[in-house]
Amino acid sequence: MSNDLETQLQEQLRSSEDHLDAPMLARLHAARNRALDAGSGHREPRWRGNWLTATAAAGAAAIALVVAVRQPADTGQLAAAEFESTLLAAAGNNEIISPVTDEPVNGGGNADEMLDLLENLDFYEWLSQEATAEQPT
């Protein structure tokens, strides 16, 4: 480069690169890492910094799960295993707690009656299947 002005400016500008302070160098280093991470798809930086979005999404998922679990089945009947566990619990506590509403079920007071019901559970299950089989298609 023959021009003195060009030479002087080039030297000064290039030497200025070596005089960046430590915080700025750290920010540059972090910016490079962010660019490499985001650009190569190893991580998604939008999620990393946006905890609010992630928390909201997790909350929405939890609410949806609770609503789904608490939704009564279309048939109005509990699964057999769930019903059995409820009866077993009632036998010990002398009370039936609805697995749907978490409230005591009316009329569920007598432990002996609950034990009888439990002993005849196979009969009631067979009865339910018979009734289903007899329904016209």
Partner: peptide, 14 residues
């Protein structure tokens, strides 16, 4: 300037 450089780096990598 820092934003510009980071954006340029990101575009190059992508």
């Amino acid at each position: 300037a820092l934003d510009i450089v980071q954006d340029a780096m990101l575009r190059l990598v992508r």
